[in-house]
Each structure stands twice: as C-alpha cells, then as structure tokens.
Design a protein around this nucleic acid. Sequence first.
DNA 1: CGTCTAGATTGACACTCATCGATGTTTTTA
DNA 2: TAAAAACATCGATGAGTGTCAATCTAGACG
Lengths: 125, 125
Amino acid sequence: MDFFEVHRYSSGMASRKLLTLDPIACCSPVRTDILDEAQAALLANSFAALADPIRLRLLSHIAAAGGDEVCACDLVEPSGRSQPTVSHHMKILVDAGLVAREKRGLWVWYRLIPSRLDALRSVLG
Amino acid sequence: MDFFEVHRYSSGMASRKLLTLDPIACCSPVRTDILDEAQAALLANSFAALADPIRLRLLSHIAAAGGDEVCACDLVEPSGRSQPTVSHHMKILVDAGLVAREKRGLWVWYRLIPSRLDALRSVLG
DNA sequence: CGTCTAGATTGACACTCATCGATGTTTTTA
DNA sequence: TAAAAACATCGATGAGTGTCAATCTAGACG
C-alpha cells in the first residue's frame, strides 16, 4: 500500500503559499482514494479559506448575488469588521480561487468562481 | 435585507467548542442563502477540521476503507507524526462529527460518518 | 496484586492567524 | 496640481494551532 509514503515533513511543514498544483483539477475524492501529501496540502489550503465565519459570510453574500458582482464597499459595514480586516479576508478568498476581484475606477467588484466551489464539493463526495 | 445583522462579535469571538446547533441539519447552501452568524461559526468549525493536511490524509485513509473500521494503531506510523499528535488530530475529526470513535479492548477503532461529509458537501452546492 | 500495552492528556514551544490603527497607493474630480 | 475617496499594505498584538516528550489512564493477562 503506497499510503503515507513520506513519513515526516521537513520540519515546520512546507509553506502553503508555494504550492503550484492546479487547484481545480488536482484531487480525487477523499472518500474513495487516498490523498498524497501535495494533494492534502493543497486541499487543506482551500478548506482553510472556508474555515473562518467572516469569510464564509462574505462568500455567502457574494454567492447570494447570483452571477452578479458585489462591491467591496458593500461588504465592510455589515460584516462588523474594519475595512483592513475585510480586505485581508477577501484577499484570502481570492488567493484560494473562490472569488474573482476586478477594480473599476475607485471601486473593487467581486464575483464568485463557481468551478472552484464545485471542485471542493466533488472532493467531499 | 437581514444580512450581517450583528455588527460586532462580543470580542474574541465565541468559543467554537460551545456551539450547540445540530451540525447535520444546520445550514442552507452557501451559494443561495446568506449564512447567519451561528451557521457561519458552525460551518467554519467543520471546515477547520478539514484545513490540515494530516487530518485530510487520516480522514482519507479511514474513508478509503469503505464502511470498515480502521485501528488507531494503523494511523500513527504512516502519518509521520507522533502518537500524541495523531491522537490530537483524531479528536478534532471526532469532535467535528466526521469520524466515530469506538474503543474495544486496548484498541480504538475509527469509522467515517458519511452523513457529515454529505452535509458539508451540500453546503458547497 | 503487578506488569505490559494502546491510547489520551499535559505542558511547553514555535508558529500562524484575526484584528485594527496608521499609512500608502491609485483613481476621480475639482 | 491638489484634494478626496476606496482599497491595500504595514506593524503590532493577542489568540489560536501543530508538534512532541513526558506522563497519565484504562484494559488485558499473568
């Protein structure tokens, strides 16, 4: 069984930011195949983006707009967090590939990337 | 729109351990409805359990056994982590409702709780 | 009883993360 | 050019997390 083939991380665990695997096509379902280290690290990174209540609600807000975009200016006040904090969380969602960011004039608009959520969903089944 | 109805957490955010909502039946899909704070906190807790590569691989190992159980003794060595660390991660998976733990004699056996994964998956769609 | 074994718990440490005030950057408009 | 607005970045801080060695607990078996 070629499971857990490497028995120790190189101390401190490789940085999640440096992974280069395709985040969409990477992973087999968790429930039928066994994840290798690279797949597990990539998936963990994606799930970590969902592991914060503020980010989940920001994502939910954008998703609830259907295919439409949501202005960043409409996310700060209702989130109950400061503008820098919301900007920080949105960056994490964008980096995770869940949300697309586009600046037009002074405003920044966000829209959902459905395929990324679909990919994560398929991993759980 | 009753979105983000509470604008500030009570400082430090409520402990995730104290949530009492039913983890299975709690949440509407992220993509059509907007999460309230309690739903978001509960979901964030569940996704946090998936946000670690070691836990993903432990879960994957158990899931790959089909409906069968996996002995804790078979998880430590291939994970490349110490026995206390694996025990710690398994506790997080059990607390998240993803895995059931049963002790028989000296050994502990784990099995997947498919409905919990199904619930998380449905939240993403 | 005593001993052995599987697993959980504790304590400590280093690292990461969420948060916000202050500041920087970019774009619009006067 | 100057001022204002929207958003990003920086720096600091307090809380959370992964890790392991050491220790504890509970079951099995003489």
